[in-house]
Design a protein around this nucleic acid. Structure first.
Lengths: 340, 340
DNA sequence: ATGAAAGCGCTAACAC
DNA sequence: GTGTTAGCGCTTTCAT
């Protein structure tokens, strides 16, 4: 309690106070090795009394390993990443894994310097494993470290190489939505998605939609949008005026933007226009009647942490892990049969 | 590039490769002290070539201090915390502060053992400062460390003691909403909020609402709800049947639950019932016409990080910092004049 | 401008 | 059971 107790108390102080050697104190504190129950108590009591907080920095340096897994996360204001983050933390907690997180902004920066920065910060901490939940850092940047520490990409596929992956099956999502829209009877559809440089995920969804739609003989207008949800929404409405009866958005954020625009333009949804999105994470999405796919965040988080734990335990096979999960369709009221 | 390069490369290797001593290598790598530009280049080049990633664990132990600020966060699936998290990270990034985050679940656990756990993990890392963005850890638990390391609570007030705070002025939010509802003409109002054990924030909002309402002569029914948004919504509707014309919810999540229930019960909003919430962070809240207060996440995050930076620089006064921010009313379509 | 040497607080053999 | 000892990889005086 004294001003220079607490964080300044070392294990030496504890050992001295208990009248034992540092080694014995370590053992007692970690509950390993055999010690007399009596001394153990004495040491624990001393630690408690002095307010000892073990210096993990020193411990990890001495032990030559870390107990923590690094998590690289993309901007968590995106609900999808926010939830994934929360679930990953939860799962890790449950399994006794310590997670330390660094986030990387999404600002355009030259050559992804920030991502590399964040990566190095984590690797500099000599984390025991790495979970990467951001598209921002490339496989090529990860690869060099893949045989030093298990690296697992969460949320997004990893096509090849030594990086493990537990991911959303976005192509399946795209197909599910396309099938739904087709089933409703639409034959002229606009697909609104971030351009290739904007979002890999949206691209995946959008191209799956396009393929499924064209395969079924529908006429598709692809609209490559900017990063903001409201970008290029006008183009989508233009397509509607030109005859499209449905706008399929690659994200719920875009779906909201389209709904807003449709409302402002006096276009009835789903009467004159059907709209779909993807993500399914918005609280209140049910009230809005969003038609979407609920991505399986929980499953991906659980599988990712479990996989990481296996990797840390060395139980992994020679092959990198690849596990995909598809969510389920949320049949809302923003999409209906094409009307007039 | 060889299998045991990269993470196994120490500064010794770099020094050796460059034909200098460890000390010189350190200087070159940190860009401090005077060294011949030529040797500097040689060292940097060697580091690059060997793929050297500095071991921050060792560096921090040796230096006796950390460059990182710890962030204790509550479950980020809550949009309010998710956004705060994202903004804090952003701000920290911008200001060159390194943040390491640990989250604490919200599960009921005996005596908040998990919170203490998380706290110790951060303190064990000997972080340079601590930002606490969860109500889960109490002032009493924080206090003992307050003179070892600057501790700043973000999002929630800190009444006394040595803990700094940058917070949402929830009482103001409650008053703003109450004034709005009163202004619309309501005189019989139900207030739905998590009970005292559920959410401190909601309590703050709710009691401010109650006070403002009763001060204006309105009749108020307080409903102490459970943790889930849908908890006790039935009680709120019961109050409506008994004559209340408005239900003020302490959070938007509860507002959504009430809207859902009202819809299912065939109660017109805002015709027969006005509903308000608080948070204002839901994407699509505008489409739903939510009446709410948008909490000033950005301001709080920015102020918190700035404050922390000042504290780290030792520029703080003797008094703990206390900075509150109020958001603004979002005048939606879920609240209107009392009708019949 | 560079090197030598002494630790930082802890763990982990290895003795006793 | 408990103590001794040698580091972990790096920073930092203090010499030179």
């Amino acid at each position: 309690m004294s001003a220079d107790s607490r964080l300044n108390v070392t294990i030496n102080d504890v050992a001295a106070a208990a009248g034992v050697s540092r080694a014995t104190a370590t053992r007692a504190l970690k509950g390993e090795g055999r010690i007399a129950e009596q001394t153990r108590q004495r040491i624990l009591e001393a630690a408690e009394r002095l307010g000892y907080v073990p210096n993990t920095i020193a411990a990890e340096l001495a032990a030559g390993r870390t107990g923590t897994v690094g998590l690289m996360l993309r901007d968590a204001s995106n609900p999808a990443y926010g939830r994934l983050f929360a679930r990953l933390q939860d799962e890790a907690h449950r399994r006794g894994l310590d997670l330390v997180t660094v986030t990387v902004g999404i600002g355009a920066d030259r050559q992804g310097a920030k991502q590399v920065d964040a990566l190095h910060r984590l690797l500099g901490m000599r984390v025991a494993g790495l979970i990467v939940a951001t598209g921002g850092v490339s496989t090529a940047q990860l690869e060099p470290f893949a045989d030093q520490v298990p690296i697992l990409r969460a949320g997004r596929m990893e096509a090849e190489g030594r990086i493990h992956a537990v991911y959303y099956d976005e192509s399946a999502h795209g197909r599910m939505l396309a099938a739904h829209v087709l089933g409703l009877g639409h034959r002229r559809v606009a697909v609104l998605a971030g351009g290739p440089d904007v979002s890999f995920t949206e691209q995946l969804r959008a191209s799956a939609m396009r393929d499924a739609l064209t395969d079924a003989g529908a006429e598709v207008t692809m609209i490559a949008a900017g990063a903001l949800p409201e970008d290029n929404v006008a183009d989508a409405l233009e397509a509607v005026r030109a005859g499209a009866t449905a706008v399929m958005c690659a994200s719920d954020a875009r779906q909201l933007a389209v709904l807003r625009a449709a409302r402002d333009a006096g276009i009835a949804v789903p009467g004159a226009l059907s709209v779909t999105g993807c993500d399914g994470l918005l609280p209140g999405g049910d009230l809005l009647g969003l038609t979407t796919v609920r991505i399986p965040v929980e499953q991906v988080a659980a599988a990712a942490v479990e996989a990481m734990q296996r990797l840390l335990a060395g139980e992994a096979g020679a092959e990198p892990m690849r596990q995909g999960f598809a969510g389920e369709l949320v049949n809302g009221s923003t999409a209906g049969p094409p009307g007039r």
